[in-house]
């Protein structure tokens, strides 16, 4: 499966990665090779197999609706690179 330069730019954009033209070309090749490898799975006939959303033999794992104590504000913010007045602080985000 051949990924175009535009495909790679789109995916990079969604992942907020800023790539050079050189990197885009390189990753287009590498990602295409990975997809080619995975494409071998297409050879298996799965028309009779229902989609598998989850691989472990588990279902209906749920908890009762009973609140438990939360973290203290200081603890919640302990690893934050920037904070103010009990909030996480980040550079202003608006749609570009």
């Amino acid at each position: 499966m051949h990924l175009t330069i535009d495909d790679v730019r789109h995916v990079a954009d969604l992942a907020r990665l800023h790539l050079t033209d050189e990197e885009v070309r390189l990753y287009a090749q590498q990602l295409s090779a990975i997809l080619d490898y995975a494409e071998r799975l297409q050879e298996v006939d799965t028309s009779d197999v229902p989609p598998t959303p989850y691989v472990l033999p588990l279902q209906n794992v749920m908890a009762e609706d009973v609140p438990q104590p939360s973290l203290l504000n200081e603890v919640a913010l302990a690893n934050a690179p920037d904070k103010a007045d009990g909030f996480f602080r980040v550079r202003a985000v608006f749609e570009e």
């Binding site: 609140p67 939360s70 973290l71 203290l72 913010l77 996480f88």
Partner: peptide, 21 residues
């Protein structure tokens, strides 16, 4: 009473920021 995927309380209205996490 609690959140969708954890048991933090949902009574956040009027609560100080980041005290239900």
């Amino acid at each position: 009473q609690s959140k969708m995927f954890c048991r933090c309380a949902t009574d956040y209205q009027g609560a100080p920021p980041n005290t239900r996490t």
